[in-house]
C-alpha cells in the first residue's frame, strides 16, 4: 500500500510539472500544445544519453536537462508556431502545427533511440532508471526529487510572478496582452518565457519518469491524455490550475489502478486513462474553465490574498 501512495505522489508531481507548462503556454499563446508529452520523452532520452555517454546520474543531470528542455520549448515556439502567428493563422491551424511538431519529435526520438543503441551496443529503445534510485531514511529518491522539483518550481514562480517587475509584467501580459502592449511591455517576452519554462519543466519531469515506469518512444502517446486532463480539470486559464489538477488526476489515476488491480490483477494501468478522460469530460460538461475558474476558487484566492 505504501508503494501505491509513493507511486501516486511521484506521478502527481510529474503531472504537475507537465501540466504547468501546458497551461502557461496555453495562456500566453492560446494554443493547446499536443507535443507536451513528447517534451517529456525527449527529456527521458536526454537523461539516458547523459547517463550512457557522460556517466552522469539522471538526478545530477537535471540542470542540464532543464536548459536543453528550455531550448526545445523555444524551438517549438520559433519553428512551429511563431511563423503561423505572424501570418494570423487560426487556432485550428496552430493546433495542427503542434500535432505536426509532435510527430517530428516522435520521429526524432524513435530515430535517436536506435542511433543510441548502435553507439552503446545496448537496446535503448526501452529503458528504466529504477535500478539507479537511492533511498533516504526509507524514502525513495524519486519521491524526494520530484517533490523538491515541484516545491522549487512553485516557490520560484511565486517569487518571480509576485515580487519582480518582470513577473508583474508577465501576469499583466497573460491577462490582457493588448493592454500590456499599450503599457510598453513587450508581450513577446511572455511567450518566450512560457515556452522556455514549459520545455524545461517537461524535460525535467521526463528525466524522472524512467524511475517510475518503462520508457519507449511511444510513451508520449500514453501520457498525453493525463496531462490534458490535469490542466483542464484544474483550469486552463490559471497557472495554479495545473498544480491542483495535477494532484487530482495523478492521485485518482493511481488509486483507481490500485483498486482495479485488486479485482482484476496486474495489467490494468491503461484503465487509469479512462478515469482521467471521464474527469476531463465531466469538467468540460459542468464547468469548462475548471476548478480555478469557479466562484468558489475566487473566494479562496481572495482569502489567500493571491
Amino acid at each position: 500500500m505504501i508503494d501505491v501512495v509513493i507511486g501516486a505522489i511521484v506521478w502527481s508531481n510529474l503531472l504537475v510539472l507537465l501540466a504547468l507548462g501546458l497551461t502557461m503556454t496555453y495562456i500566453t499563446t492560446g494554443v493547446p500544445n499536443f507535443a507536451q508529452a513528447s517534451f517529456a520523452i525527449i527529456g527521458s532520452y536526454i537523461a539516458l544519453t547523459l547517463l550512457r555517454l557522460a556517466e552522469l546520474h539522471p538526478y545530477l543531470s537535471l540542470p542540464v536537462t532543464f536548459i536543453l528542455g528550455g531550448i526545445l520549448g523555444l524551438l517549438t515556439y520559433y519553428l512551429a508556431l511563431k511563423p503561423l502567428i505572424k501570418r494570423k493563422a487560426s487556432i485550428e491551424m496552430l493546433m495542427i502545427a503542434t500535432l505536426a511538431w509532435d510527430l517530428i519529435l516522435f520521429g526524432i526520438t524513435g530515430a535517436y533511440s536506435e542511433l543510441l543503441s548502435s553507439i552503446t551496443k545496448k537496446t535503448e529503445t526501452l529503458f528504466v532508471f529504477t535500478y539507479l534510485d537511492f533511498e533516504f531514511y526509507g524514502l525513495p529518491g524519486r519521491l524526494i526529487v520530484s517533490s523538491l522539483l515541484v516545491l522549487l518550481t512553485i516557490l520560484g514562480l511565486y517569487l518571480l510572478l509576485y515580487k519582480t517587475k518582470f513577473g508583474i509584467a508577465l501576469r499583466a501580459s497573460m491577462e490582457n496582452p493588448s493592454l500590456a502592449e499599450a503599457m510598453g511591455i513587450n508581450v513577446e517576452n511572455t511567450r518566450l518565457f512560457s515556452w522556455f519554462l514549459s520545455g524545461a519543466l517537461a524535460c525535467m519531469a521526463g528525466s524522472v519518469l524512467p524511475f517510475l515506469q518503462e520508457i519507449v518512444p511511444q510513451t508520449g502517446y500514453f501520457i498525453i491524455v493525463s496531462i490534458f486532463a490535469a490542466s483542464i480539470v484544474g483550469g486552463l486559464y490559471h497557472i495554479l490550475g495545473a498544480l491542483i489538477g495535477g494532484y487530482i488526476i495523478g492521485i485518482s489515476e493511481s488509486l483507481f489502478t490500485y483498486v482495479l488491480s485488486i479485482f482484476l490483477g496486474p495489467g490494468v494501468l491503461v484503465y487509469s486513462k479512462v478515469i482521467s478522460l471521464l474527469m476531463m469530460i465531466v469538467t468540460i460538461l459542468i464547468h469548462p474553465k475548471g476548478i480555478t475558474g469557479t466562484e468558489l476558487w475566487r473566494k479562496v484566492e481572495r482569502w489567500l490574498n493571491l
Binding site: 519553428l79 512551429a80 503561423l84 493563422a89 491551424m93 495542427i96 502545427a97 500535432l99 505536426a100 511538431w101 509532435d102 510527430l103 517530428i104 516522435f106 520521429g107 526524432i108 524513435g110 530515430a111 535517436y112 533511440s113 536506435e114 542511433l115
Partner: peptide, 19 residues
C-alpha cells in the same frame, strides 16, 4: 535507424511548411 522515423519527420515538416 528505420526509415519509418524519417517518414514521420518528413511528413511533420511537410505539414508545417503547408501551414
Amino acid at each position: 535507424f528505420e526509415a519509418v522515423w524519417l517518414q514521420y519527420i518528413i511528413f511533420g515538416i511537410l505539414a508545417l511548411l503547408i501551414l
